[in-house]
Amino acid sequence: MRLPASRVLSRQLKVSRNIVKNAYHDLRSHGYLSSAGTRGTFVRVHIAGRRNLEFGK
């Protein structure tokens, strides 16, 4: 699942872009997100050492 760009999400949530960037960074450092360069930021479905996440169930 692709997440919105930090600029877009900060506008939608009416918060500072730095807040969104810091949240994305923290989630990435814990293995919940992965970045794919210019393609964007994505939620990781499988996190090493944890069971697979099942969305929509």
Rank of each mutant, 00 (worst) to 15 (best):
R50D: 02
L3S: 02
Y24I: 05
K14L: 06
S10R: 00
A23M: 00
G40D: 02
V20T: 14
L27V: 14
G56P: 01
S16P: 00
T38F: 00
G40K: 05
N22E: 01
H25W: 09
K14R: 05
N52V: 11
S35H: 01
L9E: 15
R28T: 12
I47M: 04
F42D: 04
Y24Q: 03
V15D: 08
S34R: 01
A48Y: 07
G31Q: 02
S34N: 09
Y24M: 12
N52L: 00
S10V: 03
A36N: 04
L9P: 15
R11Y: 04
G40R: 06
R50C: 13
H30W: 10
S10A: 13
R2C: 08
S35D: 06
K14W: 08
S29G: 01
L27Q: 15
V20E: 07
F42V: 06
S6I: 14
N18L: 01
N18Y: 01
R50H: 05
S6Y: 02
I19H: 06
R17A: 10
S16L: 12
H30L: 12
N22W: 01
R51I: 02
S6W: 09
N22Q: 08
V8D: 07
R28M: 09
G40I: 09
L3W: 09
G37F: 01
R2N: 15
L33P: 11
S34A: 08
G56M: 08
V15A: 09
R7C: 07
A48D: 10
R44H: 01
R39F: 03
K14M: 02
Y32W: 07
N52R: 12
P4L: 11
Q12Y: 03
R17K: 12
R44V: 02
K57G: 03
V8F: 05
L13N: 10
G31P: 14
D26Y: 05
L33N: 07
R50Q: 06
T38V: 01
A23L: 06
I47C: 10
A23S: 08
L33K: 04
H46E: 08
R11P: 11
K57D: 09
